[in-house]
Write a protein that binds this DNA or RNA. Sequence first.
DNA 1: TTTACTTTTAACAGAATTGTTAAAATACTA
DNA 2: TAGTATTTTAACAATTCTGTTAAAAGTAAA
Lengths: 205, 205
Amino acid sequence: MNLETSLSTEEAILAAARKVFESKGFDGARMQEISDRAGINRALLHYYFRTKEKMFERIFDEALERFMPLLSTWDQDLEESWELKLKRFIIKFITFLKTNSMLFLLREIIRKPELLASKTEKHRKKLNKFVLYFDRLKQERLIRSDVDSRYIYVIIHSLCSFPLMNGIVFSYSLRISSKEYDELMAGYPEIISDLLIQLLKYQKN
Amino acid sequence: MNLETSLSTEEAILAAARKVFESKGFDGARMQEISDRAGINRALLHYYFRTKEKMFERIFDEALERFMPLLSTWDQDLEESWELKLKRFIIKFITFLKTNSMLFLLREIIRKPELLASKTEKHRKKLNKFVLYFDRLKQERLIRSDVDSRYIYVIIHSLCSFPLMNGIVFSYSLRISSKEYDELMAGYPEIISDLLIQLLKYQKN
DNA sequence: TTTACTTTTAACAGAATTGTTAAAATACTA
DNA sequence: TAGTATTTTAACAATTCTGTTAAAAGTAAA
């Protein structure tokens, strides 16, 4: 067994599969297209991964593993200010989003909702750290207390996710090119950091 | 020709097709599933619509036609306050979103980006009304002028769209049932209306 | 009731797609 | 270099899916 060669073939396949699954989705993806991209015979896909389904799961798992560490942002340590935490999260999140993985994850979860429960089982605990953290901030009067933390969760995630997932439509609606949209979006993390901080800081009255 | 019967068969097919295309996407949709749902023979689908592609286009067009009128909100009339306009838009938008059509549209546009240009051609003018309207509000000092209107566009649409498109994931992350999530979301339009108004009104300094 | 037209169905054809297998090519080891 | 194990390929099998067609069933009008 030649480990290096074997690994690089497997890597080539995975890279191709990632690309194809992310852009076409499981249903639209074709084994032929993946093997073409990887520059190998189609049967090799089955040699390495047995079935399309298993190959897909590998890609899905990897995307999830890249995403989950983001949630550690909300581990409750007291030293860092919530403003900094928030900024850090937004930057990391948006960077992740640029890889297209988010739309991929969402699309496939909608296709097959079982994926959500089965694949995130081992990250179960991480999932509600955000709400716990923000509840605590409210308790300690560091942020406004009149908005349900779950709304804050939804708002932050929406502001981070959607502008990148929906880039094609937004750039078209704003009548600018994809490139111009990307340039516009370069300033976006800062804008929403500021807006969110401003929003969370002051109580409405 | 029996018009009534024919119409109701066609309607049954369209309703079934809408359901299947929206949940599975074009690639995942099966003609067999659509005909089963409509309670008719599969060949009838072709009798009425010739091909899967043509049937899909009909569904896509209809979803777009339901969506486009929302944009008229931003016609520039002076009588209504921008706060009211905004509230009206958010409510209507979120109501539309509940039909699942938004995720459907986005998914299919990503699959086949040409759809965007070809299908929205006749609505081209409506698309940039938002930015024009908000630029004018800034000009007249009715809202803060230090945020690019295109960011405001992106922010508002993200806040409206994503919480409903991503409902499955959000409810899972927040550890509540779909039903509880829906109940939570009942209060959402008001929350973001207030937040956005608060945000747009006051200049940061 | 007969005739003509429309709607619906069953059966079939063709294409595309996933997965298998046996043999060829390549790499490794003694 | 010979032999063995691994990697790769071409050809094939099986299934699934879209689209066609000819005939059956239903409807309306003379």
